[in-house]
Design a protein around this nucleic acid. Structure first.
Length: 459
RNA sequence: GGAGCUGUCGUCUAGUGGUUUAGGACACAUGCCUGUCACGCAUGAGAUCGCGGGUUCGAAUCCCGUCAGCUCCGCCA
């Protein structure tokens, strides 16, 4: 733990030094901020001087950062505490730290360069990392390509096992569930494992369960035996043409194993992506000393939220649409891409950012597509749109999750390892017993009544 | 909200129905030794086996409930 907190300090210190040398200034923004309609659940703080009103702890300093751009600070950053009232995970705490930066007059490439150089600097300056003489490796991949080849928008590039599209091979198939899938505009994809003997019957059962957990109907396997003879539950339904095309397209050799999922695109990605990661660990394909950074870009601007039954921002509502696809904004917003980019390290998202909208009409249009009503927009973002109307510089930025980054650079697998006094999975501080009850007196002062019933509610 | 795993001295843990008066390591206390340095040696203190019920002649061990911790799904603009 001591080593971890020291590593964290060294990384933070190096980052500050780096930004300083690059002409960024560190500006603190309010922790008592405004509740936002989009995004994660807010932590609320009652206001004594304004009965019935609440501050919200910031999910990120996004609006403040952008407003600073409007005010002529063309390069600023902060080591910012952020708060999101959602359930915890091994890599997620309700209270966490971001290195958050914003720059004026930039393209995505400029922001990426700044971050790549930040990491190079960290790897050089932080002793624990420089001693190992490991060079970080940066690549870029389009969101669509990442989904196609790795089934996820945060691919782990420390190992291969790419996912291959094989829908076309089965256009004339007699295999019923393949036929059904293709009829419903689904797809068929496969992962090829070179040595079929690496996976026992029992392992295949486990993989099938993973696929089913991801919503797939199941997992089909095909082994290529001696003389490329196909062994599979569906082998007698495979035509000679299909076998020939599989061998040709997937470059199959003897003793290969194909793992195949046929379903909707999203389900296939989820299933084979999860299986791929499982196999990466299981087959020991991962070199734990490697640091593979990858920029994922060309994200969709929106996505469909099944739970809310409406379109929501994939990144956040201030993200600028890509000029090549903005023409679909009215006709089919889900086809619009954005100038957003995520940085992924060894299969974990450690940061994301975008070029922001700097046109008030476009910003209003985005809010409309998100079905935020006029009153809400005015209330929450009025000042923001007003500023845009006066003209603001084009700008963009990014936020890096400090805790997660230190965790990964330290070779750790739990975010609590790099946080002093972290919260348990039920969001409790073990040391102090926070959260705790308060006196009636305190509650009266802030005009709050606690409702006893299984759940406690504010106000 | 759902699924699963775990719960033994201060800490890490051994122990899966019967000499278990629950064993060890580190830490602690006392004494001895000692230019020692992850000191060594001896002695000692320290555990209602998370809690409540049940099964059994007998439960840390099996079952049920509960609480806590952890992992995952949902959730995380």
């Amino acid at each position: 733990m001591q080593r971890n907190l020291r590593l964290r300090h060294d990384i933070t210190a190096a980052a500050r030094k780096y930004f300083e040398s690059r002409g960024f200034i560190e500006i603190e923004t309010p922790i008592m901020a405004k509740s936002t309609p989009e995004g994660a659940r807010d932590f609320l703080v009652p206001s004594r001087l304004n009965p019935g009103k609440f501050y919200a702890l910031p999910q990120s300093p996004q609006l403040f950062k952008q407003t600073l751009m409007f005010s002529g600070f063309d390069r600023c950053y902060q080591v910012a505490r952020c708060f999101r009232d959602e359930d915890l995970r091994a890599d997620r705490q309700p209270e966490f730290t971001q290195i958050d930066l914003e720059m004026s007059f930039v393209e995505p490439d400029d922001v990426m360069k700044v971050i790549e150089e930040l990491f190079l600097y960290i790897f050089k300056e932080v002793k624990e990392l420089s001693d190992k003489e490991i060079k970080p490796d940066f690549t870029r991949i389009r969101w669509k390509d990442s989904m196609e080849s790795y089934g996820t928008d945060k691919p782990d590039l420390r190992f291969g096992l790419p996912i291959k599209e094989i829908s076309d091979i089965f256009k004339e198939t007699s295999i019923k569930f393949f036929k059904d899938t293709l009829k419903k505009n689904g797809c068929i994809k496969s992962i090829v494992i070179n040595d079929a003997s690496l996976l026992s019957r029992k392992e295949l059962e486990i993989l099938t369960d993973i696929a089913k957990d991801c919503g797939a109907g199941g997992l089909l396997w095909i082994k290529t035996g001696y003389g490329l003879e196909f062994q599979s539950p569906v082998s007698k339904f495979l035509s000679e043409t299909e076998k020939r095309d599989l061998i040709k397209n997937l470059n199959l050799k003897e003793n290969n194993l194909l793992l195949i999922v046929a379903d909707k695109f999203e389900v296939v990605c989820q299933a084979l992506g999860t299986i791929r990661n499982y196999l990466g660990e299981k087959l020991k394909l991962i070199n734990k000393d490697e640091f593979k950074f990858v920029w994922v870009y060309d994200f969709p601007l929106f996505e469909w939220s099944e739970s809310e039954k409406r379109i929501v921002s994939k990144h956040h509502p201030f993200t600028k649409p890509d000029k090549n696809t903005i023409c679909y904004l009215k006709s089919n917003p889900l086809k619009v891409n954005s100038l957003a980019y995520d940085i992924v390290l060894n299969g974990e998202e450690i940061g994301g950012g975008s070029i922001r909208i700097n046109d008030s009409n476009l910003q209003k249009e985005i809010f409309n597509i998100l079905e935020l009503d006029e009153k809400r927009i005015e209330e929450n973002f009025g000042f923001f749109i007003k500023a845009m109307e006066y003209g603001i510089p084009p700008h963009g930025g990014i936020a890096i999750g400090m805790d997660r980054m230190v965790m990964l650079l330290g070779g750790l697998d739990n975010i609590r390892e790099v946080i002093a006094f972290p919260k348990t999975q039920s969001a409790v501080c073990m040391l102090t017993g926070t959260p705790s009850t308060v006196t009636e007196e305190q509650l009266r002062e802030v005009f709050i009544k606690v409702i006893e019933e299984n759940k406690e509610g504010k106000k």
